[in-house]
């Protein structure tokens, strides 16, 4: 094979590879960014709240924050994300709270409903509230990478350590992956 043939064949192979990639993307519905820009994000269905989002981010206080999908929240008095499991009094005393930094705040709405908000300045992405909410509540508290804080590193140092590969690059047009669709069959056909 002469050099010219080699270059031609290589070019064909590259084109073929591109075609296969595009076809695969369509077939497997891989999300492709229209703008070609991608950002790191957490898949809340894969996240297991290992605590590494808090310790592995290159930012001094992690760019990962807890976010609240209000349409999923039960506005409960006994909130698994707010209270320590062994708490006896359902009040806002520090000794009752699960959040190590007091970032999760609650406000009385009407008996027996409470609204829960996250103070992002205090949130360190430890995921304790997410775990408590997911285990004992509706899973309305979720960890997400905040793109106003994320440096969008070439290799995300949290993703590298994530035990469930929950962090991946997603198209910038769908930068946040918050579960909260009530039409999810798992929710409308409860077991």
């Amino acid at each position: 094979m002469n050099r010219k043939t080699f270059i031609n064949n290589s070019g064909r192979l590259i084109l073929l590879g591109g075609l296969v990639y595009l076809t695969g993307s369509i077939i497997f519905k891989r999300k492709v960014s229209a703008s070609g820009k991608y950002v790191w994000q957490i898949d809340p269905f894969k996240c297991m709240q290992c605590g590494r989002c808090s310790t592995q981010c290159v930012r001094e206080i992690s760019a990962v924050k807890c976010v609240h999908a209000y349409q999923l929240c039960g506005y409960c008095d006994l909130c698994g994300g707010y209270f320590k499991p062994n708490t006896h009094k359902l009040n806002t005393g520090a000794e009752s709270q699960l959040c190590p930094t007091g970032a999760l705040k609650r406000k009385y709405v009407e008996e027996p409903f409470f609204e829960y908000k996250i103070d992002e300045k205090l949130c360190n992405a430890c995921g304790k509230c997410v775990k408590g909410c997911g285990s004992f509540g509706n899973g309305s508290l979720q960890l997400q990478i905040r793109h106003d804080l994320c440096q969008n590193c070439n290799e995300c140092s949290i993703a590298r350590m994530c035990p469930t590969n929950a962090i991946s690059r997603v198209p910038i047009e769908a930068a946040y992956q918050i579960k909260g669709d009530f039409k999810n069959p798992a929710l409308t056909n409860p077991k």
């Binding site: 009040n91 806002t92 005393g93 520090a94 409470f114």
Partner: peptide, 12 residues
């Protein structure tokens, strides 16, 4: 630093 005290949720 602010203290987290019972009652700050305004529950009557």
């Amino acid at each position: 630093f602010t203290k987290s005290l019972p009652g700050s949720d305004n529950r009557p």
